[in-house]
């Protein structure tokens, strides 16, 4: 098998952190993994993406980038970037998205419209298997969303062990948010 997870958001939301954790977890679980972050403008309010591809066949060659229709899972931390990433999701794939949009100052001033949760669902519903909306109720929210994602991700077994091992700062707080995510009630 060869699978892909596409993560997106804006700078400061911890997209890179959870992508690194997922990659480390897959690595520890014996998969062949590639990971690439695109964070060029992250600190300046810009789009962030992380692409993870993994295979249980360690000899299998594969490229590092996810193509359109190539992601089995999308984790979206910002709804504008989630909608922008719709073409990456495989038909029948899983979307876990946070109900949050960072409004750039220019959007507020020019009254540009940015997507809400209804818009995300409208775009994804026709081809998405699991469409999971997460209200950002627990902080740090990236660990909370990761917890929700873990419920839909078959490779999540022993993910907590990876987290305990790899997290260096605010470990208790992060693990608590992750557990809250795991217990989060969603309508699938």
């Amino acid at each position: 098998m060869l699978k892909s997870v596409f993560l997106t958001g804006v700078g400061g939301q911890g997209v890179v952190t959870i992508a690194n954790l997922l990659s480390a977890h897959l690595q520890d679980s014996g998969y062949k993994v590639t990971l690439i972050h695109a964070t060029g403008m992250a600190q300046r309010g810009g789009r962030v993406t992380s692409e993870i591809r993994y295979s249980d066949d360690r000899d299998r060659p594969f490229g590092p980038r996810i193509s359109s229709g190539g992601a089995d899972y999308i984790i979206g931390m910002d709804m504008a970037e989630t909608v922008n990433s719709a073409s990456f999701l495989k038909a029948g794939g899983t979307l876990v998205f946070q109900n949050y949009t960072l409004l750039p100052s220019t959007a507020v001033l020019n009254k540009e419209s940015f997507p809400d949760a209804e818009e995300v669902k409208r775009v994804f519903a026709p081809f998405t298997g699991n469409l999971v909306e997460v209200e950002p109720s627990v902080r740090p929210v990236n660990m909370f969303v990761l917890g929700v994602f873990a419920r839909y991700w078959p490779e999540a077994e022993r993910l907590e062990e990876t987290l305990s091992k790899k997290l260096t700062k605010r470990v208790e707080e992060n693990l608590t948010a992750f557990h809250r995510g795991r217990d989060y009630r969603t309508e699938a």
Binding site: V10, M41, Q43, R44, G45, G46, R47, S68, G69, D78, A80, E81, V83, N84, A86, S87, L89, A91, L102, P104, S105, T106, A107, F114, P115, V123, F127
Partner: peptide, 17 residues
């Protein structure tokens, strides 16, 4: 392979920290 699904492009204008 399938044609990509189309979606509106929302732009996060980059600015100073």
């Amino acid at each position: 392979g399938p044609a990509p699904a189309s979606a509106t492009a929302y732009r996060h204008t980059i600015t100073f920290c």
